[in-house]
Design a protein around this nucleic acid. Structure first.
Lengths: 181, 181
DNA sequence: CGACACATGTAACACGTTACATGATTTG
DNA sequence: CAAATCATGTAACGTGTTACATGTGTCG
């Protein structure tokens, strides 16, 4: 729902048209998640379907634009004021991967952890470089970078923890990749 | 693709049937992400379509089961050995929300941050309690909990950072919720 | 003129998700 | 016997994603 809500929230300060929404979304998030233009239009048509926005203009001379309905405005308000629900944490691919690697007794779990660590470290460096080039005024882009850095940082510490747990379990056990059955 | 790959990887040590896959997936991930049984079957049928697994049995007496094909085995290998690609970080709803709240000049960003902080703290506590109850042998469940804790931990530190950045920017500016345009 | 950015859209498909129908088997 | 668990599946829909078609304006 991130894109849907994101586009919706960009409409709070007045009607806008499709292409503009793409650019503003990417600018706000530092082009971190490039947005296919086509998706903007598919999403907008779904928002029209759900009566969150209305189409306006689109005649020969006037530019077509999308305006928030009252319901859409409520939706944005709700989105901004409701924290991510507690019971269902976001599914994290890496976590699942490692968990299943252990559960199914994959032989090279340590290698997998190491590969992820290398990858994360590399990305972290490129983020740091990018952060240095950032204008101080780009607040929203700065916090997006901060978020990515924080996440990767946590990921690295988690990977270390995983390896520690694995080595601890495997100490003086059979060869490796022990399956607890 | 987490579920698809997850189910696939559970089939590496021999054929299994649907219900069993659901239970094993949930056990491996500590029932953290409950899996609707129906989804197991839809996913399995798509895996059959893609020739990743084959159906076996299903007659009157024999139990139907799913067996990995060679292609499926390759897929699992690739999944376990390929780190999450660098260029596209996972889209994070919270990050987008905060970034857009700032970019669109929402008036109560600080409240939003505070709400998320409260939520995260609560979940963190429940995770800690759950971690204490865990059997030491449940390695895969332990690392899933570790991952969730690490993520929330990072999230809290990020939220603090956001607030600091906001206060810094807003110091001696107009009222609040300044839009940089 | 040719390349590039601007601009709008549609068709097709992917995975994830839930609601529902159906029946066998176990257990209190 | 009733309830719970085991077990299988389908229909319908949601969002996200890409590939493609199409056209205008601008700038070197």
């Amino acid at each position: 729902m991130s894109i849907r809500n994101g586009l919706l929230s960009l409409l709070v300060d007045g009607p806008k048209y499709g292409f503009q929404l793409k650019k503003e979304f990417e600018e706000a998030t530092g082009s971190f998640w490039p947005l296919n233009v086509g998706q903007v239009y598919t999403t907008l048509s779904r928002l029209v379907r759900d009566e969150m926005v209305t189409e306006e203009g689109g005649g020969d001379d006037t530019q077509k634009s999308y305006r928030l309905t009252e319901r859409g405005r409520d939706d944005v308000r709700a989105w901004f004021s409701t924290p991510r629900s507690a019971d269902t944490l976001e599914r994290d691919e890496l976590t699942i991967k490692v968990a299943l690697a252990i559960a199914t007794g994959q032989p090279h779990v340590i290698d997998l952890l190491q590969a992820q660590r290398t990858e994360a470290t590399g990305v972290l460096q490129s983020l740091t470089r990018r952060k240095a080039r950032l204008e101080p005024a780009d607040l929203s882009q700065a916090i997006v970078l901060d978020a990515a850095v924080a996440r990767l940082d946590g990921e690295l510490r988690w990977l270390d923890l995983c390896e520690a747990r694995l080595r601890q379990t495997n100490t003086h056990n059979s060869t490796s990749g022990g399956r607890t059955q």
